[in-house]
């Protein structure tokens, strides 16, 4: 039965095949690569929930990742919290910002929402960069301790990998359960036609805020993992380009598809890494893959909606002559 096989397979790969293979290779670089890929899996899964399932095109997701990373960095370097506390705290702080940001912007229709998230994301970046007394600005925060949650030393490559894999599996479970439930159906209904969903008795704004809270919580956790495993955070890691990278993962993998988010993340992290021989082409490759994918694979690798459909509906909603006299961009 598929319902048992798929989770078993994921479990076997995450906790059996991959760690065994990586240990056998004994390469810190490969472990690091696996860690980064899994962190980006968490990010792409969380964005999949917002953009693929609920249909809200966000261009500022990296900001929440950054908030999570800075929360972990500041809590662990200034207050000496260990990772057992900083990871959940990062998720909560990020979700708090997610809700605060969602409250005023969720009433915006689609494309305006996308633009607002771009603006808010850059605002958070500018703040991280300039609030020097708190974030050390462009210098970044270094010497972030490795993962030692509740005194368990997981700072070895294998330990770190296993913790990240466990959290990625948890994120997968959360996104899967939310997306594949009647609750997930209501989110898809928002994606398809939120005005109609409203008429069917769904509290549209509240649903969007809830989705945003869950997704930003996961992004915050990804940020904390990044901070602890890299040991150093810098505002430049959480800019617009990073948001686009996450968006590209979701688009390439296919909007609305959970396997798509994972494959997209793996593809866009590992492929540029494999191309390192010919120089620093990561972002170029991301742009190129995204473009070709939109052009030739409009549903992504696994998607249930075409990217164009999403954008088309976004624009359609934004420009549909509103039947009411509410101002443009509002509903």
């Amino acid at each position: 039965m598929r319902g048992v096989l798929a989770p078993l397979a994921v479990f076997a790969v995450l906790f059996g095949v991959l760690p065994a293979g990586l240990s056998a290779a004994g390469s810190g670089y490969l472990f690091r690569l696996a860690d980064v890929t899994l962190i980006f899996c968490i990010l792409s899964l969380s964005m999949q929930l917002i953009t693929g399932v609920a249909g809200l095109l966000t261009l500022g997701h990296a900001a929440f990742y950054g908030i999570g990373a800075y929360t972990a960095a500041i809590l662990s370097t200034r207050l000496g919290f260990d990772a057992g506390l900083t990871i959940p705290a990062s998720g909560l702080v990020s979700a708090l910002f997610g809700v605060l940001i969602a409250l005023p912007t969720m009433r915006l229709v689609s494309i305006y929402f996308a633009v607002a998230t771009l603006g808010l994301g850059e605002m958070i970046y500018v703040t991280l960069l300039n609030w020097v007394s708190f974030t050390r600005g462009p210098l970044g925060i270094g010497d972030i301790p490795p993962l030692r949650p509740f005194g368990f030393d997981l700072s070895s490559p294998l330990g770190t990998y296993l913790l990240i894999a466990a959290l990625a599996a948890l994120a997968l479970l959360v996104v899967h359960r939310v997306a594949h439930s009647y609750y997930g159906n209501t989110l898809r209904a928002l994606r398809e036609d939120d005005q109609c969903a409203d008429a069917m008795g769904l509290p549209v704004v509240r649903l969007k805020i809830e989705t945003f809270a869950i997704a930003t919580f996961l992004a915050g956790i990804a940020g904390a993992l990044w901070a602890h495993t890299t040991g150093y955070v810098n505002p430049a890691d959480f800019r617009f380009a990073e948001s686009i990278l996450i968006l590209a993962m979701v688009v390439v993998g296919g909007l609305g598809s959970i396997p798509g988010a994972i494959v997209g993340a793996a593809l866009l992290i590992l492929l540029p890494e494999a191309l390192r021989a010919i120089g620093r082409v990561r972002i170029l490759a991301v742009g190129l893959i995204m473009f070709l994918c939109i052009l030739f694979l409009p549903k992504g690798l696994f998607g249930e909606v075409t990217a164009l459909d999403l954008v088309r509906r976004q624009f359609g909603a934004a420009w549909r002559g509103s039947p009411t006299d509410r101002p443009l961009g509002w509903r």
């Binding site: 009647y182 609750y183 159906n185 209501t186 898809r188 209904a189 994606r191 398809e192 036609d193 005005q195 109609c196 969903a197 069917m200 008795g201 769904l202 609305g256 249930e304 909606v305 459909d309």
Partner: peptide
């Protein structure tokens, strides 16, 4: 104004969840 990329069942279930 149906939800075109969802199944008939899922379309109707949205109404039920709405209630």
């Amino acid at each position: 104004r149906l939800f075109p990329n969802m199944t008939v069942f899922d379309n109707v279930s949205v109404g039920a969840v709405g209630r």
